[in-house]
Design a protein around this nucleic acid. Structure first.
Lengths: 329, 329
DNA sequence: TTGTAAGCGTTATCAT
DNA sequence: ATGATAACGCTTACAA
């Protein structure tokens, strides 16, 4: 690890003050063309690059943003992160990946990045802790929420009306003629997202005068494996549903796999609808509720950058779901 | 954004010098218990956290590592990154996500992170540029290669013998009785990975005295969509293969989907083997060559951290492939 | 065991 | 238009 050239070396070689060198570095006006040329020259000659640690300290700006996701291997989140990284890179921002693993403590630990000035802001795509835990950090930099939402959180948020999402999926099943429809989701905890989606489900059912069996509420399913397990539970229900709404394509995929392995026909014996329209949904012919992930991601990043640079946050474009009908319903 | 307490404020409140405060911060020996208590107290009282920008500048250490991947949405890479982030977090390191999009320029741009001291090291999971482009950065911090490899690169690398991978998959097809076996992979460019895998394919074919039709070499396939397209090309071949080895589960999945959509039976009309054993492979019943991604990821991160801390890099554990037989072969 | 003082490499302030 | 000079907040010789 050789010693790198500093602004001092450049100044010396060019025979000009550090201040002026710094000026050309930061594209200030009022630098004589001639000197500018000399400085640029010296920089090239010394293979100079500004030391960003020093810049950070001086400017109290890191050009880095932390993105919290539960796990990057979840395709929904990896897609979101992909878009965010692209958008961030466009504006010269770097992304630090923070996987919370659905864990409160992990989440809190990563929040310290904000307080220790390692990032300019934090994007939350999932929320584990109650909002009061986030509050103390709000003075350290902007926090922006994407996908999730929290009633207590007065921060910019980019999200969809999940009531509509739940309604849309359920309504589709109803329209296809199913009446006994089960509901399967992630954790019911304090996630308003899940609660809202359920509201949509109930609304659609009520509207169609369909009765919901309490046994049809299936929770804590997020992975393919969970989906498989859900099928076992489903199978043993006395009052067996003929269709099931799920909160993710993965759970739907697991359900589908287990059902087929058990010799069930889909959708004849059980109709299944997923959520997210992941590549896997297309492959499996899974009907699903699609979310505009790309728009959500880029929108969120834009809001974040505006918050960092202190610009007024513009109104959000309307983001909405749409239904994709394939072969499982 | 309020003004945060500095080490100075803590020192003042505790009535002790900054030096000593710094000492307790860095767990130095030789600090009187009494003073230590006082200082810790003052810190808590002021809600003090060290400013990491200042620490970085002073220590020339960022505790941050850049990970280069083509795209995070590719499940192989997202899995790798998940493991790496977990491992990094264990040791107090943060990860900056760099998506190269298979693009030389992007890759070069991200490399600047090393020169500008924004990261302590760089992990490459794919390589776009020729190695001579990386050389100038080697004095700025460790570069570790994972998954890929480059003959010109004298840097720590964690990788599998892809000749074996190619051989294993092809041999499986041969053992199942197929004779006309096609080979499908990503870019043949300068990626030794792809070349080696092909070598393994050719070796297995030769060993079984099977002849390879030049038309059976299919390149530049990496996505599901590519797989679908490959099927169209395959269909039109005069000398049609009865089985196909692919370099990724995604391509295999696309191939499978397109084949089924065209009314082909798999494996009767076309046997397909994938690579990576992604969740989707299991879901589709895809036979595949599995890689020990978790071990590769954690191993790589360990090697990187050792390189940063200047420790001797231990010998690598033996990593190897294994074959998973499902229903497509 | 503790403190003083010098610096890490920049940029901002204030002169000129 | 340019240059001294003083921060930014921390760590580390060196002294005591």
């Amino acid at each position: 690890m050789l010693k790198m050239a500093t602004i001092h070396d450049v100044a010396k070689l060019a025979g000009i003050s550090r201040t002026t060198v710094s000026r050309v570095l930061n594209c200030h006006p009022y630098v004589a063309e001639e000197k500018k040329r000399k400085i640029l020259n010296a920089m090239k000659q010394l293979d100079y690059v500004p030391n960003s640690s020093a810049q950070r300290l001086r400017k109290t700006k890191t050009d880095t943003i932390a993105v919290f996701v539960p796990r990057i291997t979840n395709p929904f989140f990896s897609h979101l992160v992909e878009v965010m990284e692209n958008e961030a890179a466009k504006f010269g921002y770097k992304l630090i990946l923070c996987q919370t693993h659905y864990n409160k403590e992990q989440e809190k630990k990563f929040l310290e990045l904000l307080k220790t000035k390692q990032v300019d802001g934090v994007i939350l795509t999932s929320i584990e802790n109650e909002w009061r835990h986030f509050k103390p950090y709000m003075s350290d930099g902007p926090i922006v929420i994407c996908n999730e939402y929290d009633d207590d959180a007065y921060v910019p948020s980019v999200y969809l009306d999940q009531v509509k999402g739940g309604y849309l999926g359920t309504k589709h099943l109803i329209d296809r003629g199913y009446k006994r429809i089960a509901y399967c989701a992630g954790s019911e905890r304090r996630s308003r997202l899940t609660r809202d989606r359920r509201k949509g489900y109930e609304q659609a059912m009520k509207e169609a005068s369909l009765v919901i069996d309490e046994d049809w509420y299936l929770y804590n399913a997020i992975s393919i494996e969970d989906g498989k397990n859900m099928f076992q539970r489903l199978k043993q229900l006395k009052n067996r549903p003929e269709a099931i709404f799920t909160g993710s394509d993965e759970v739907a995929a697991g359900l589908l796999k287990a059902a087929k392995d058990s010799g069930w026909r889909v959708p004849q014996d059980l109709a299944i609808i997923g959520f997210d329209n992941q590549p896997l949904a297309q492959l499996l012919g899974l009907s699903t509720v699609a979310q505009p992930i790309e728009k959500m991601g880029s929108q969120t990043m834009k809001v974040m950058i505006q918050a960092i640079t202190g610009e007024e946050s513009k109104d959000l474009t309307n983001l909405s779901f749409h239904l994709i009908h394939r072969t499982t319903t």
